[in-house]
Design a binder for these strands. Structure first.
Lengths: 164, 164
DNA sequence: TATTGTTATACTCTATAACTATA
DNA sequence: TATAGTTATAGAGTATAACAATA
C-alpha cells in the first residue's frame, strides 16, 4: 500500500461538464474528521515502516515487542498485551516466532509459576539497537513536512487521544 | 477492541523487587514514535466509531463512501478508490452491499461506457445525513481531552503526513 | 475462584493475479 | 494498448470460546 501520488484534489470547478473527470473527489467533510485523517496518516507511515524494515524481517508489533523487552527485561506476555493493547491469543505465535529466530528467550518467572519471563538474547538486543536507528530515520522521512516542534505537538495530541 | 482502562504507566520505581509486577511497561521509546502513537490513537477512535455506528450498520469505509457520494454524485468506483486509497477489488463487495441495501444506485456513466456512476438514493442520503451528526458527536467525545484549537491543529498535522 | 499462557477458530482487512468490456 | 470493473484467492490482522497449569 505505497503512499498515494502527489496530486491535489480539485476544488469544485465552476466550468462544468466536458472536462476528463478528476482523479480525486471533494473530500472536505471527511477531512474534517480526526478519525479519517488518523487512518490515512497511519496508512502512510505504516507502508513506509513495512518497506524500510522488510530487510530486517520485523513488522511493527514485532519491533514494539523487541523495543519493550530492551527496556523491560523479564516482562511477561500479559504485560506486553496490556501495554500494546493486543489480545493474548494474537501474541502467542509472534512470541514463538521471535523465539525460534533466537531473538528472545523464555525463562521461568521468578515469582509466578504460571508466567514466563521474556528476555532479549544478544542477537535480539543487537537487532533492536540496529533497527531503532532505521525507525528513527523512517519516522523522520515520513514527517519531513513537519518541523521538530510540530512533530512533538503531534505526538502529544495523539497521546491525549488514547491515554487516560 | 474497546479503549484500554485509564491507568498511567509506572515510571521506573527506584525501590526494587517485591512489588506485584506493574500492569504496564516502560514504553518511552515507542511513545516517541509518531507511527506508534498514530496506531494507538486510531485504534481508540476506530473502536468508538464501530460502537456508535453499529446501530446504523455502517463501517468506517462505508460511511466514507456515502459521505463522498453525497458531495460527489455520479462518482465512479475508480474515483472512490483514488480518494480513499483503497484497492478496486476491495471496493466491489462494499458497493454491492450498499446497493443491495438500497442506499446507492449504479447508473451508466454518461461519457464512459466502461464506468458506472454511483448515486445516493433518498434512503442513502437520509442515512448519510443522520449518521453525519452521530460521527461528529463521536469524534467530539473521542477528542474530549483536546480543545477546539488542538483538534484543528491535529487534523492539519495529520494531513501534512499523508498529503503531497 | 481468578489468572497466565495456550489452542482452535472465525471473521475482517488488505493485497495480487487475471479476466471482460470498453476506450 | 490502456483503463474500469470484476472474480478468485491468499495472507494479515483481530476477535471469541475454551482448556491446562498455577495462584
Amino acid at each position: 500500500m505505497p503512499a498515494a501520488p502527489r496530486k491535489k484534489t480539485a476544488a469544485t470547478p465552476s466550468a462544468a461538464a466536458p472536462a476528463p473527470a478528476p482523479e480525486r473527489l471533494e473530500a472536505g467533510t471527511l477531512e474534517a474528521l480526526i478519525g479519517y485523517n488518523t487512518r490515512r496518516a497511519y496508512s502512510v507511515i505504516s507502508a513506509l515502516f513495512f518497506e524500510r524494515m522488510a530487510p530486517y524481517g520485523l513488522k511493527q508489533v514485532e519491533y514494539s515487542v523487541l523495543a519493550l523487552l530492551a527496556h523491560n527485561p523479564g516482562a511477561t506476555s500479559r504485560q506486553l498485551c496490556a501495554t500494546l493493547d493486543i489480545l493474548p491469543p494474537n501474541l502467542v505465535s509472534l512470541i514463538s516466532a521471535l523465539d525460534r529466530r533466537g531473538l528472545i528467550e523464555r525463562r521461568p518467572h521468578p515469582r509466578d509459576g504460571r508466567a514466563i519471563g521474556l528476555h532479549l538474547t544478544a542477537a535480539g538486543l543487537a537487532l533492536a539497537q540496529e533497527t531503532e536507528q532505521v525507525v528513527i530515520e523512517l519516522e523522520s522521512d515520513a514527517a519531513d513536512a513537519l518541523t521538530a516542534r510540530e512533530r512533538e505537538t503531534l505526538r502529544n495530541l495523539l497521546q491525549k487521544l488514547y491515554k487516560a
